[in-house]
Design a binder for these strands. Sequence first.
RNA 1: GCGGGCGUGGCGGAACGGUAGACGCGCGGGACUUAGGAUCCCGUGGGUUCGUCCCGUGGGGGUUCGAAUCCCUCCGCCCGCACCA
Length: 825
Amino acid sequence: MDRPYDPKATEAKWQERWERDGLYRTPDRSDRPKFYFLTMYPYPSGDLHIGHWYAMAPSDAAARYRRMRGYNVLFPIGFDAFGLPAENAAIKHGIHPKTWTLQNIDRMRRQLRSMGAMFDWSREIVTCEPEYYKWNQWFFLKFYEAGLAYRALAPVDWCPNCNTTLAREQVVGADRRCERCDTAVIKKDLEQWFFRITKYADELLDFSGIDWPERIVTMQRNWIGRSEGAQVTFIAHAPDGSSHRLEVFTTRPDTLWGATFMVLAPEHPLVPVLTAPERRAEVEAYAYQARRQSEIDRLSTEREKTGVFLGSYATNPANGERIPIWVADYVLMGYGTGAIMGVPAHDQRDFEFARRYGLPTPVVIQPPGGTLPEPLPAAYDGPGRMVNSGPLDGTPVPEGIPQVIRWLEETGRGRRAVNYRLRDWLISRQRYWGTPIPIVYCERCGTVPVPYEELPVLLPEDVDFMPTGESPLKYHEGFRRTRCPRCQGPAERETDTMDTFVDSSWYQYRYITPHHQEGPFGSEEVHYWCPVDQYTGGAEHAVMHLLYTRFFTKALADLGLLRFREPMLRLFNQGVILGEDGERMSKSRGNVADPDEQVAKYGADVVRAYLMFMRPWDEGGPWSSRDIEGVARFLRRVWDLVTAPPPPPQEVPEDEALELRRRTHRTVRKVTEDFERFGFNTAIAALMEFANHLVRVRQTLAGSAAWEEAVRALVLMLAPVTPHLAEELWERLGGPYSVHTQPWPTYDPELARAPDVTLVVQVDGRVRDRLTVPADLPEAEARALALASPRVRQHLDGRVVRDVVYVPGKVLNIVLEPTPAEAKG
RNA sequence: GCGGGCGUGGCGGAACGGUAGACGCGCGGGACUUAGGAUCCCGUGGGUUCGUCCCGUGGGGGUUCGAAUCCCUCCGCCCGCACCA
């Protein structure tokens, strides 16, 4: 026997053989049903860390399982190669981003191969290659033609550390930090390119066709933030005597009669118009202050509300009352219309504002069966009936909303409206290492798209990419200066590059035909493989990548390029793997588990199996250098089981052989079910239990048919988890190459069902005895057996049996009449 | 504040409303060894009158023949959003 198992030599041997044989090359068509299994591609940061393994190794096992289940499985890999870290590393170390990126990719390719995954490397994509990013530009032009890409001057989020604008999704927290570097962002007014994702807001709220984790669905829903209500027109009277329509959005039109003031955001265009001359200085000072405030940490959302009276008034369209107009920074220009009606009695924010500035707070909703106290201690937003609301007095609250809306529409004072929190996707970046935006600005012709035949607009390499706060390409004369495609006159190129999330919005389609020249992908092939059947990756992309790629797919469908509207049918988020101390892994904490080291110590199979066994995959958790030993021990035991010299031939005890067969089929059933739901930890636990049993019966059963069946099943079920070990053992068992193209073992449900079960006998719900009985024992017999049990009789004690609950194969519960004492108590 | 998730031995965790603690780690005992941090066997929630019964799944209450599981409530932790009108 070969002992001990030598993972290093074995893993290298098989990886080479698989590579040579093209074992993982995916055929473009097949009689088998297709299954597109996709795991999020990595950013080539330099080293493959354990988090990559945690995302990819179980995905690989699941993909291998699918393949053994008879599917034509596509499991591709590539690199998300554009992005800031390359540029930052380049600035720091004086190495070109491209060199840095490609070196890292080389290194990571080697590391990824050490995992022994079934990636089809022939389909690899690298997004910083012109062959890839050309199609980002192509999509941009298509979007531009369709009105889905537009340029606008807008107050945008700017990260002073990354020196670029960010999409709204890339600004996190109440203190508005950069998602990448945690720096507090500031506002700037810039002309930027946007993708019109808001056009799809409603469709993006529809998750009916896809099976995604509740968590992600909820986050996307909240992010899109749909609210229904009304847009109401107030007439504002400027100090110069002119009148202006002042639009507000409200989700509570039923409280319109309670609006006693209006508030504009400091950036609202009507602020200067509506400011009285004598208040101008104060208003301007406030607006300036508010502007600065958004540049400083606006940490506290609980801070007191502040504002300034403009000195002008508007008319409440409901009751004709004259109400003052204020400016306050608790109203945001970026949501709704940037103006609100203040209903202090029924909105907590308005209430606080009114209290501070002594504005009246008339009640227009009274709670059921009561009146609100005077003075009001807080805003009331519960149920009730409308009061002081003219014709609608007495209307109960939920019904009041549509009635007021109808009234507004009939009188031309407003209309039903829907508002979203979602903003259009800002894709311009003032950085070098990204896809150039294919637009030319011509003095005569204006904004001119680069013609398709001139794509790709190549990213020049000889660029000084030191961050200046402006696009590095702006200082590259050869790039910037160009000719107008329309009039051939002198023109300038757009020098911003695209958000790298554009790259990842459609990469799943590029894998299908990675070198396609005539378009972004071959339509026939994409419609064979797509949509993705199973996607796996981290939850941190919930409202970025995962939202953008849904938008992209819908947009491409509307452009006639795709015949489906969701990119990924099923999504699974693995958890986060932590250091041994339970903290996030980081070099500075020194709690990093390095996969290369672990592979050198245990071999890839042990690392894979440990990561899958450790905890439920969606929960993640701390790495344990102790627990991995247990997995190593398990695999050694399996090795010995198969390779140890067989015991001398002997008579096979039939009952033990049958019991082994039953266990085999039961284990196949359990492991199959667990693989289906990604319950890898329990699948491996079942395999351990099975292997332990095999160790116990080896002396008596080795060599028997039941034994052969068991060992083969064990090796086949291990194949997705520990591909190298399984291949080696399979060969030693005399199985045909390769174990990975063998069918997954099947089970006989009859055999898998245990013939004898432990029937739990309870008295009043407490376990009193356990009987081994046939699974299908009739109730009468079960009852007789239970009542015959001395342990049970002891508890009956002559008392009256009121009821017997029998669940065959599980439990028999004898319910007694309560004793007088119990009955009283 | 709103939304989502979670709370089980010394530890990681199992458990269609039906034997709580599978599997693994650790620990205790033993075997084999020159030796072992290798391997194998036995034990391992707490209490106990120990071939017994009692108590145990964050606390309290409820539904049920039966609750870790369902409902209510409180406490604690994690994640997301956050002045969104």
